[in-house]
Design a protein around this nucleic acid. Structure first.
Length: 855
RNA sequence: GCGAAAGUGGCGGAAUUGGCAGACGCACCAGACUUAGGAUCUGGCGCCGCAAGGCGUGGGGGUUCGAGUCCCCCCUUUCGCACCA
């Protein structure tokens, strides 16, 4: 570098001290002001003339303290909310607490604190943390799901579900977690283990439970995914897999020699076109017909018992797909209605009772599982599909049979009676129609989705508002008697069913129908009920006589942007979608889906692993805030990487952001007066450096604005502002010498405050005030960039020879191509490099480069 | 096994449409100012090389004047699904 080291003309020690950025002081001052005026962040009434924007972050469980995942989630949402506010939207940005749940009971057992007290004090603490972080929530709409004013409406919704036959009670095999001492929904079982206890295998128990008929909406839930274009593809795929739609047909096989002539086995198949290749029937071990078919043969009986045990064990281990296939022949036969052929009936451990009909036709030649099974037991393998189109002759030397199992669908039927020579797709249509006409089958659609089991044998949840009367049976609690209050002072243990069952004052009641004695339902609701509709309640959180006000909801909904972790891709997000459809059909909302856009942020990790107490790699937000301030903590969570990616927490990075904010702060503090005092002299001439800063300012505004409108890569937004501040420092001697037009200097400083405000609201507010500006930044318009001012008037062309960088040439912007070519070829380095070579071609890319192709 | 995403310096990451690889930040090195520095400011910082220059975006091929970016094959990591008939 030829330039000599510059001495900073401004900084001396005493000034250093004076200009020191002290986030604690600034942040405390502003937090006190914001607290004193809670209307600052309040959304306007729905009659507002502004366009609405509903930005929502998933509400936290009040576990005791915020973790970095929360900070990241809320920093993204808050930046967006603030940006939208500045763009003149009426923004709804609420927060609440998913406050029911088992940890409160565990804490009660461990520390002898009532769940309510534990939960409410956690909420108080976490709310303090959120305020300290400066998130702009409308606290007037706070929702706490464990309070009667909220869970009353859970109960009301339950009554509506019951009324519409969407809630029912049945005895069935359910998932049981012994650590939680309660039943779990299918969605809460991950790899055979409890979602809260990764190493606790879920057991199967036969219990009577309340279910919600989510399956009534299977088709709409899956079809609706196609329209959710602004949901991550990953989430949509996961939901599609979970719902598991599958088109096929039911076909009845008559049991040969049945005592009862109506005895038949109905199979579900997606490949009715292969039915002539069916060489056995396979039943799930728990199929109701098995007992009858096996009769009282003790040998067969014990074999079937073994199969049931194998399945149960595999299910608990979560590796259903991995177990070795076993089966047993019942000695009985069934009749294929298409061919009138008799096929043996087997019982097999790879057939599941809870999917389809629990019975399949086994086509070894065209199904991998059936093939494996048939090979093991020596069952016939009959080819009925050829990998060939209709009319296409076999290729010379093509073997008669394809490589088995052959499972492709675009091919030709053989050995299939009158259906031979049809293509698969055609055969599926014709054969389904044939079965339907013959009364032994029909087309159908099967789903993997099961109804949602919502009963929990736990205390800290919403009581299910049902009664059991000796005379009248199951009786819903009348609406007027809601809420069914959760009693206090309950002895909590993890044994022997719901703790509520041991509270006589709660259990014993009178029947609203007959006035006789009745018992209350003692199970409580899955907490996912609470979170399935909480975001509707925010629109009118204090409404006393209804769950929600339809007009208000219709104004705010659907949610414009929902932000949360991908771990809820199935659980919370599928229940919420179901609940929205249910509410729509009740006529109280009109949207089909809760949220038009969904964003799933990446995990926060440390030292390459998810933060967890057991690994000892937890970074506390409190520590970060104490050390570097809320602004630096938030801004680092956005700067370290783009919001969708995994974030590796590095404390040195937070320090770096803090250092940058200090630089920005010092710059404004040093020049605020100069800008204010000379504010009138707008027409002052711009030096080249000043013009360069002005251009850079508009380029920066453009970059930050485009990041908000496009990809949300706030890491590059922050980088852009950093670059800008670096440029200002480079121009500092001119600025200090008063060579910058004051109006430009003022504009630069205001813009810094405005651009920083979505990311570092405390510092931005402080700078805003220092600059003599009044009013909350949220109500100040987002700064527009001027494309003309952002435009460079010179372009640096890259000159390549055969694609290799060799030189540069600076030309006025929009130079004609001829001139660019001429100047490139005249460049000294290029001329030297071209010596003795033949120029084949010269490629000029406007505004970018010149590539000279030589030979 | 199936599906998706990713792989770039010592580290976190930039590089919308193919066009200067490594912006910005961290760490590190040097200098300035200092009684002092874990403050601040200035400069340097992919690898090899004294240099000229060469090599470089997981590996191998290809398309192109030009490839981190597009195509084919392979490897690794992460996530999701996995007897769903």
């Amino acid at each position: 570098m030829s330039e000599t080291t510059k001495v900073n003309p401004i900084v001396n020690q005493s000034e250093q001290r004076e200009l020191r950025y002290e986030p604690q002081r600034i942040e405390e001052k502003w937090q006190a002001r914001w607290d004193a005026d809670p209307t600052l962040y309040a959304a306007e009434p729905h009659s507002s003339k502004r366009k609405k924007y509903y930005v929502l972050e998933m509400l936290p469980y009040p576990s005791g303290a915020l973790h970095m995942g929360h900070v990241r989630n809320y920093s993204i949402g808050d930046a967006l909310a603030r940006y939208m506010w500045m763009n003149d939207y009426n923004v709804l940005h609420p927060m609440g607490w998913d406050a029911f749940g088992l940890p409160a009971e565990n804490a009660a057992i461990k520390n002898n604190v009532p769940p309510r007290q534990w939960t409410l004090s956690n909420i108080a603490h976490m709310k303090t943390q959120m305020k300290r972080l400066g998130f702009a929530y409308d606290w007037s709409r706070e929702v706490t799901t464990c309070l009667p004013e909220y869970y009353k409406w859970n109960q009301w919704f339950f009554l509506k579900l019951y009324e519409k036959d969407l809630a029912y009670k049945k005895k069935s095999k359910v998932n049981w977690c012994r650590e939680c001492a309660t039943v779990l929904a299918n969605e809460q079982v991950v790899d055979g283990c409890c979602w809260r206890h990764e190493d606790v295998q879920v057991e199967q128990r036969e219990l009577e439970q309340w279910f919600v008929r989510t399956t009534n909406y299977s088709e709409e839930l899956i079809a609706g995914l196609d329209k959710l274009e602004n949901w991550p593809e990953k989430v949509r795929t996961m939901q599609r897999n979970w719902i598991g739609r599958s088109e096929g047909a039911l076909v009845d096989f008559k049991v040969d020699g049945a005592i009862n002539t109506s005895d038949k086995i109905t199979v579900f198949t997606t490949r009715i076109d292969t039915i002539y290749g069916a060489t056995s029937i396979q039943l799930a071990p728990e199929h109701p017909l098995v007992a009858e078919l096996v009769g009282n043969d003790p040998h067969l009986h014990s074999k079937v018992e073994d199969l049931i045990r194998e399945q149960a064990r595999a299910k608990e281990e979560g590796n259903l797909g991995a177990i070795e296939k076993h089966g047993v022949f019942t000695g009985r036969y069934a009749c294929n209605p298409f061919s009138d052929e008799k096929v043996p009936i087997w019982v097999a451990n790879y057939v599941l009772m809870d999917y389809g009909t629990g019975a399949i036709m086994s086509v070894p030649a065209h199904d991998e599982r059936d093939y494996e099974f048939a090979q093991k037991y020596g069952l016939e393998i009959r080819v009925v599909i050829l990998p060939r189109r209709i009319g296409q002759p076999p290729a010379p030397g093509e073997p008669e049979s394809p490589v088995l199992p052959y499972t492709e669908k675009d091919s030709l039927l053989i050995n299939s009676g009158e259906f031979s020579q049809l293509s698969n797709m055609e055969a599926i249509e014709k054969m389904s129609a044939f079965a339907e006409k013959g009364g032994f089958g029909k087309k159908t659609i099967t789903y993997r989705l099961k109804d949602w089991g919502i009963s929990r044998q736990r205390y800290w949840g919403t009581p299910i508002p049902m009664l059991y009367c000796e005379k009248c049976g199951v009786v819903p609690v009348p609406e007027k008697d809601l809420p069914v209050l959760l009693p206090d002072h309950v002895d909590i243990t993890l044994q022997g069913g719901s703790p509520l069952g041991r509270v006589p004052e709660f259990v014993n009641t009178t029947c609203p129908k007959c006035g006789g004695s009745a018992r209350r339902e003692t199970d409580t609701m899955d907490t996912f009920v609470d979170s399935s509709w909480y975001f509707y309640r925010y629109t009118n959180a204090k409404l006393a006589d209804r769950a929600l006000d339809t007009d208000t909801v219709n104004y705010w909904f659907p949610i414009d942007q929902y932000i949360g972790g991908v771990e809820h891709a199935i659980l919370h997000l599928i229940y919420s979608r179901f609940w929205t459809k249910f509410m729509r059909d009740l006529g109280i909302v009109k949207n089909d889906e809760p949220a038009t856009r969904l964003f799933t942020q990446g995990m926060v990790i440390k030292d390459g692993a998810k933060m967890s107490k057991s690994k000892g790699n937890v970074v506390s937000p409190d520590d970060m805030v104490a050390q570097f301030g809320a602004d630096s903590t938030r801004m680092y969570s956005l700067f370290a990487t783009s919001p969708d990616r995994e974030l590796e927490w590095q404390e040195a990075g937070v320090e770096g952001v803090h250092r940058f904010l200090s630089r920005a702060y010092r710059f404004v503090m040093r020049h605020a007066n100069a800008a204010q005092n000379g504010a009138g002299a707008a027409s002052a001439e711009r030096s080249p450096k000043a013009r360069q800063i002005e251009r850079k300012l508009h380029q920066t505004l453009k970059r930050v604005t485009q990041d908000f409108q496009g990809r949300w890569h706030f890491n590059t937004s922050v980088a852009a502002v950093m670059e800008f501040v670096n440029h200002l420092y480079a121009a500092e001697d001119e600025i200090a010498a008063g060579k910058f037009p004051p109006a430009l200097l003022a504009d630069v400083q205001r813009s810094i405050a405005l651009m920083l405000s979505p990311f570092a609201p405390y510092l931005a507010s402080e700078l805003w005030e220092v600059l003599g500006e009044k009013g909350n930044l949220l109500r100040h318009p987002w700064p527009a960039f001027d494309p003309a001012l952002a435009k460079e008037d010179e372009t640096t062309y890259v000159i390549q020879i055969n694609g290799k960088l060799r030189s540069h040439v600076v030309l006025p912007a929009e130079s004609p191509e001829d001139l660019v070519r001429e100047r490139a070829l005249a460049d000294e380095k290029i001329r030297t490099a071209m010596e003795g070579k033949e120029v084949v071609k010269v490629i000029v890319v406007a505004g970018k480069l010149v590539n000279v192709v030589v030979r």
